[in-house]
Design a protein around this nucleic acid. Sequence first.
DNA 1: GTCTATATTTGGATAGAC
DNA 2: GTCTATCCAAATATAGAC
Lengths: 189, 189
Amino acid sequence: MYSQPVDTRDKLIESTRELLWERGYVGTSPKAIQALSGVGQGSMYHHFSGKPELALAALRRSAELLRAEAERSLLGPGTAVERVTGYLRREREVLRGCRIGRMAQDPEVIADPQLRAPLAETFDWLRETITTVLAEGRSRGEVAPDLVPETTAATVLAVVQGGYVLARSADSAEPFRQAVDGLIALISR
Amino acid sequence: MYSQPVDTRDKLIESTRELLWERGYVGTSPKAIQALSGVGQGSMYHHFSGKPELALAALRRSAELLRAEAERSLLGPGTAVERVTGYLRREREVLRGCRIGRMAQDPEVIADPQLRAPLAETFDWLRETITTVLAEGRSRGEVAPDLVPETTAATVLAVVQGGYVLARSADSAEPFRQAVDGLIALISR
DNA sequence: GTCTATATTTGGATAGAC
DNA sequence: GTCTATCCAAATATAGAC
């Protein structure tokens, strides 16, 4: 989930990604993006029309990287439960939260269909992917037959997103781990 | 979860509560609070030293009300699973999210121990309360014996908080309901 | 307690030179 | 493509009168 900026556009997008993650849309100013990226005012407005366009490019890239990262655990080797467990337990910067889920709190993002789209698409894709993993696992007998793949997939996603909220509130990664452990115990029986 | 403002301080706190819910800490300006409450500049700064103090009063009140609301389902009648299910399915303004959990995304709230305290305390109390409900239910045979009360309680909280994130991202309450349904199925067997 | 005036900084750009 | 100058509104107060 990291890429070294090579050109000016890239530097702007990477800096915007970091600031959106840390401070959200309303908390991210063009000036801060310029300062972090080292790109000047004129240059920034040459490459992007303004803050919304920058944010859109940043969110699209974050969504793409998040998806690639999730594929590594979900579409890798192992049984269904192992793959979902791997996804839940993969290394995360728990106290920083999710680059995508974070934006769901920003009213200006949620109100703008263009800006909201990467969020909706990312979670849709994740839910479908996890649903498929669980459904296949069930047909192979790796997963309890009474477990409903689609709703369980939504539960998995919610635990991750909610785990971040609990962790940040507690200023500790512990609640995230507890929530994940509780879920893994529930789906493993 | 509603109270009619009676005096000036109350009007300010209620308006701040609404704005913090809708726009977060960084997105809430003193001017907006004055406009919504109908209280003038001078009056506002007479009652509160500034935005942090207003936010603190608002968060404390929201935490108190949220706790009272949660007690209604968690400490009411019914088996352990019924009470947790009641908590999960109680009426919520899903697309508006949680007044408390919402603030976990605000770096200025998380960085300030005073402002973060209501969040940490609320989730600690909820986790402990749900843990107790599940532990008692287990000892009564209402809950599967292999279900760990503490981690499961964290999972319950995370599903609610994460459900809000998924719902707002999708601009639909459906993912919240799916996540909750998935969890209820998991703890009911 | 409340009002109006004033002040400083930041947000988010546009304009035009190089 | 990039730089510097300029602009106007909003954020977040403080001061002093009533």
